[in-house]
Write a protein that binds this DNA or RNA. Structure first.
Lengths: 227, 227
DNA sequence: GGATTTCTTAAGGTTTTTTTTAGAAAGTTT
DNA sequence: AAACTTTCTAAAAAAAACCTTAAGAAATCC
């Protein structure tokens, strides 16, 4: 599920990102209203979380403009306490829900899920990826191969999950760095190699068919050996 | 899609080039503002990525001068953190978008695509080239002939992809060197010949119709044998 | 606050890819 | 047909990409 978070307070933003990433959302973020508008129009987000107070174009204005051009992406507004006129205003301008700061993450999460549900998104597909005898459960974060449980660390899991999401296509180290590590261009690291090695030890070494393949010069691919 | 990257920091430049090349852009690069201006006027780039801090002529000045002579090539500015006055300045001088360093590659990529889309470029054709029973997928980097997968190395793939992009026209060794190797005019190498040979072994040798043809005195062409 | 786990970096070793070299083959010109 | 140019091929040399390990840093757990 693709989620956009528009929030200019860096601490809150980073907490939100982390939280939703943990729940297997594909999270994009941005810090101001103008960029938000553009991103929303150029992408297919399932839900947008919008702070009301934003630089350049505020959250309510974003709602208004989007609805004016018939964009009905589900929007949840975040408002500060004691600004109840904002809430009415926001809902009148096309927001679907709101939440008053400060809030608990689980509450926000629940509301986002509710919005997605309302938009008829398939929110409860099991989120299990199967590939041969390998099974990855995005919900419980458990991995099994051949019925046997495999314990992965957090990073290992995210890497495997990303590879699995893209099963059958080659993913480059850059793509992996972007999506699994939230690194911006550390141009000199081999973390990916190292983690691929960790993963291999756990999910490939003990078995005959190796699922993680190196495509030299391009990156890695998760697939069955022959093909 | 033709892209110009103007950046004086060699590491960043090389990562950017690699990243965009990976995504099948035709990438040109340059390291200073003066050369950039010249290149932009003499070529038809679809998008220009411009660092603000540049030797000789800075990025914002480049924008200004280009717009002054009615050149409206889409420009994306790269600015360092904490220089927000630069951003306003840049946008006022005709830049179309900006990105603050450090950034994730995917984000830059998304914005470049957005710019291209805005300029009405066809950004979402599937990027699969078919020629008889030969199929080249620029996205997955996989090549099939007659349904069978063929494993190519990175350079082999790029060479084949370039030939395929120009299917039906002769490409000279120099053109190939320019576009596949990033060499301009090293007239003392026969890498191209050697790689053509490698390619032939993989995609032609095992089949009856040979697709890579030599045109003596000119270069090579990818096409069906007869005709 | 100490112990444990996880993450990151760096270095050495291995494999694969890329480039160069040089001689053979094929085609052109005189 | 001999001399010359261009192209092809194989193999050696060089470079790059990748793997593995180990050790220190950071985060987490108890």
């Amino acid at each position: 599920m693709k989620l956009l978070i528009v929030e200019d307070e860096p601490n809150l933003l980073s907490v939100l990102r982390k939280g939703f990433t943990e729940n297997n959302f594909e999270v994009s973020v941005c810090l101001d209203g103008e960029t938000a508008l553009e991103m929303i129009q150029n992408n297919d987000f399932d839900v947008v979380i919008l702070d009301v107070m934003l630089p350049k174009v505020n959250g309510i204005e974003i709602c208004r403009r989007l609805r004016a051009i018939k964009n009905f992406v589900p929007i949840l507004l975040l408002t500060a306490l004691g600004t109840s006129e904002n809430i009415v205003n926001g809902l009148e301008n096309g927001a679907d829900d709101y939440l008053v700061k400060p809030f608990k993450f689980t509450e926000l999460n629940a509301r986002v899920m509710a919005l997605a549900r309302r938009a008829n998104l398939d929110t409860q597909k099991p989120d299990i990826i199967k590939l041969e005898d390998l099974e990855i459960n995005g919900k419980t974060k458990l991995v099994h191969r051949n019925g046997k449980p495999i314990l992965l660390t957090h990073k290992e899991f995210r890497l495997l999950y990303y590879l699995a999401k893209n099963k059958g296509t080659i993913v480059s180290r850059n793509q992996i760095l972007d999506n699994v590590w939230d690194i911006s261009f550390d141009m000199n690291t081999n973390v990916v190699d190292v983690y691929i090695n960790y993963l291999r030890k756990k999910i490939d070494k003990p078995y005959n068919t190796k699922m993680i393949q190196t495509i030299k010069g391009f990156g890695y691919i998760l697939q069955t050996e022959n093909e």
